[in-house]
């Protein structure tokens, strides 16, 4: 395979991503002060998920990689989610 499609990402794109990440960090800190009860964990995790998606797609170049790599990443995340889910089948219903 040739290495012809080496996509060069401009600096400013990385900078914008960083700004988005930092903004979301502050938003998730701010979320703590709003009383959401049990949903505050959910809120924090949603922010973390968006942030990690940004890191995966842009910083880790998944956007420019071959699709099978993206499929693998999604697959691994789903496997982990399934592990967590099945473990909870025990703890949630115990």
């Amino acid at each position: 395979m040739e290495k012809e499609k080496h996509h060069i990402v401009p600096y400013r794109v990385y900078f914008y991503i960083l700004l988005a990440l930092i903004t979301m960090t502050f938003m998730s800190i701010g979320l703590v002060h709003i009383n959401l009860g049990g949903y505050s964990v959910l809120g924090a995790l949603i922010f973390s998920t968006i942030k990690s998606t940004l890191v995966l797609t842009w910083f880790m170049h998944l956007k420019f990689d071959e699709p099978f790599l993206r499929i693998m990443v999604v697959f691994v995340i789903l496997v982990f989610a399934a592990l967590l889910f099945i473990t909870y089948l025990d703890y949630f219903f115990r």
């Binding site: 496997v79 399934a82 592990l83 099945i86 089948l89 025990d90 703890y91 949630f92 219903f93 115990r94």
Partner: peptide, 18 residues
């Protein structure tokens, strides 16, 4: 095979659902 591990633990006090 990745999701069947609990059959080693049927007598461990795991929940019925599991």
């Amino acid at each position: 095979g990745y999701f069947v591990w609990g059959h080693h633990m049927f007598t461990s006090g795991m929940s019925g659902t599991a």
